[in-house]
Nucleic acid binder design. Structure first.
Lengths: 150, 150
DNA sequence: CATTATTGGTTTAATCATGCAACCATTCTT
DNA sequence: AAGAATGGTTGCATGATTAAACCAATAATG
């Protein structure tokens, strides 16, 4: 592939995010981490990913600060992969992907999972709002470039 | 690579979304489309992507219903790629990625772009809420499986 | 109108990434 | 102590991506 291009230097925050989690497996690993998976073997079984690739992806996610490697709670010498605070900030990304999938990629009566409020059992909702609280869509927004230092 | 695994059959909506837009280039193309780019050459120049890959990705995005190929507004025979309604529903995904990048992948005073309300110039905000309106995080949610037909 | 440049690709060859299977060291389990 | 599970590593085959050359059709220019 002649070295995939890095977007680290891109001034667009979306591009930088994709540089970190934009490859084929990373977000699926993060999804499983949100689902409570922590162990190498769990990810491997859940995703059916090749072990060498999983090794490399986990390593990258740890290096990026999205996962961290901590001793298992049960005291052994084994380690487990846990979402860091930064990793948990990917929650909106996961919810947005989920919402898009629910809306467009399932047949009307097709079986699928839903993300619900643990307290009430009701589905959660995601919305994008202006400062005054009104919902806002892509056509009502613009991207502006903030000069350095502001 | 022995054929990348398809997630079409996965019951998880996030996985299905990633099946459609989860590869290295697709979301970057969508980002550029949100930025107003429409022509093959514009995407090619903006992304520095190989032309054959761009051809294939655009074709896939059209086939998925995220982009559509319409005659240019200036009446020529040339075509342009535009976001469909379904494509515009990826807006929250883009905003979530952007927000994550802003928060974690830029140095404090580093230059970056910001998404603002066109009317007021104020940054937009994204939040995830329970039905009663209170903000909700990953630890207050669970994924439940909806049986077929509900 | 003839020429040239631009657009939007296709094709080919080289290179990189990924998957699979085999292997291995360490740690649990019994 | 023996066997199984965990968490990898290594090597090879193959698919995916790239860069570069090429090309047909359209648009711009003299």
């Amino acid at each position: 592939m002649v070295a995939r291009k890095s977007l680290k230097g891109d001034y667009c925050p979306s591009a930088r995010s994709l540089d970190v989690i934009g490859d084929w497996w990373s977000l699926l690993i993060v999804r499983d981490a949100f689902d409570g998976l922590t162990r190498f073997g769990e990810f491997q079984k859940s995703l059916g990913i090749a072990k060498n690739i999983l090794t490399e992806r986990l390593r990258t996610l740890v290096a990026s600060g999205i996962l961290e490697l901590v001793p298992t709670s049960e005291g052994g010498t084994r380690m487990e992969y846990r979402l860091t605070a930064m990793g948990k900030d990917l929650f909106p990304v996961m919810v947005a992907l989920r919402q898009f999938g629910e809306r467009h990629l399932f047949a009307p009566a097709e079986e699928h999972s839903v993300l619900v409020d643990r307290a009430t059992g009701q589905p959660v909702q995601l919305d994008i709002r202006a400062q005054d609280g009104r919902a806002i869509g892509p056509d009502e927004t613009v991207i502006v470039k903030v000069p350095e230092g502001e």
